[in-house]
Simulated assay, not measured.
Amino acid sequence: MPSPDLPLQLGDLFTRTVDTQDVHLVRPGDTDRPTWAVYEGTRYLGTVHAQIDTGRHWHVQTLREQHLRLDDAVRAMRRPASWQAKHERVRRWAREMLTEPSLVVLDVQTTGLDDPWALQVGLTDRHGNVLFNEHVNPLADVAPAATALHGISPRQAAAAPPFAVFVPRLAQLLHGRRCLTYNASFDRTVLHRELQRHFHDAATAQAWLDRCTFVDAMQPYSAWRGLWSAHHQSYRYQPLGSSYEAVANCRLLLTTLKQVK
């Protein structure tokens, strides 16, 4: 994959804006190699080397890390001093999650992003064994953009049972468990909406969901990667590399946690 930053075309001195803040890259005068010292104002961040012969093109010398994009290399150099301790806490958290007997992993595919309904619900145990994998009739339209991602057509959705059919089975699988997701607020909102339609009562839906503990892996994983946004003063969201298939996403999340630990 060619570098999106075209390192061979960069000059000896150039400025790049990363998350609304300028950084200045200066090639040392004693080399013609693709190497630059990086400054933010008068603050020296570190040195980067463009490695155009590898799949990851920017090597951060001071961190001994490689990144595909120069912007991410800069974000890594901007990490706060607290990152190392945070990184270790996330590693411990991942180990604890993977050894938690009550852990289940959840992913929900939906009709879209705006007021979504469930189209597929996947659930595995901590080893990736399938506990639940069902398509759901949303009793609503499926956005074409959503179908383009997960491949579930309106015809397929219409042939599936409605969510209400699965409520007792999901209660057996989820209640009393720790439920790991990636972007828990989204999945939880979808389930709450389905349960509210089923029970005709928001409080009952909330009580049903409160019988399991939702754990979101999105923020810990972003902190583990440690790509700091100076503009937002937080670690940048990291895509999981979704396959847009519920069970595959559950297993992908488990694989990611194994990398983290």
Rank of each mutant, 00 (worst) to 15 (best):
W117Q: 13
P101E: 13
R193P: 10
G151Y: 05
P154A: 06
R95Y: 10
M218T: 05
D216N: 03
V215Q: 01
A184G: 15
T189S: 14
N133M: 06
R188Y: 06
A94G: 12
V130P: 14
H24W: 06
P28G: 02
G151A: 08
L63F: 08
R78P: 13
H67G: 04
T256A: 15
F163D: 13
R178N: 08
D125E: 10
Q206F: 00
T110F: 11
T54V: 04
Q156N: 03
D72Q: 12
Q206Y: 03
R16P: 00
F14L: 04
E100V: 05
A145E: 15
T255K: 13
V48K: 02
W83V: 15
R193E: 09
D107Q: 08
L191T: 09
W228E: 03
Q206V: 00
E65F: 11
H231K: 00
Q66K: 09
K261M: 10
P162V: 14
V121I: 15
D30K: 03
Y182W: 11
L103T: 11
S243E: 13
K258W: 12
W36K: 00
W224Y: 12
A230D: 09
P2H: 09
R92V: 13
D114F: 12
V105G: 12
K258F: 10
L227F: 04
R126E: 06
N133R: 05
L149D: 07
N137M: 07
A159H: 03
F166Q: 07
R188I: 01
P116D: 15
T31W: 04
W224P: 00
F186G: 08
Q9I: 03
W36T: 06
R155D: 12
S3M: 00
D216P: 00
A145K: 15
R188W: 07
L173A: 06
D12S: 08
G41F: 08
Q196M: 10
A205F: 10
H135I: 02
E96M: 14
T111R: 11
N137Q: 05
F163H: 13
L180M: 06
R251Q: 15
C179Q: 01
Q219L: 07
C212E: 01
F132G: 06
S222F: 00
H24D: 02
Q259S: 09
S102P: 03
W224A: 01
A145D: 15
P4E: 04
L149F: 10
D19N: 05
H232E: 14
F14M: 00
E96T: 14
A37L: 09
P101H: 12
V23R: 03
L170D: 04
R92M: 13
Y39Q: 03
R95T: 15
L106E: 14
Y235S: 06
L45I: 03
Q259F: 01
K86S: 13
W83R: 11
H59L: 13
V104S: 08
L113V: 11
K261C: 11
S102F: 02
R64G: 08
A230H: 01
M1T: 06
G11M: 01
A164K: 13
L98P: 09
A140D: 15
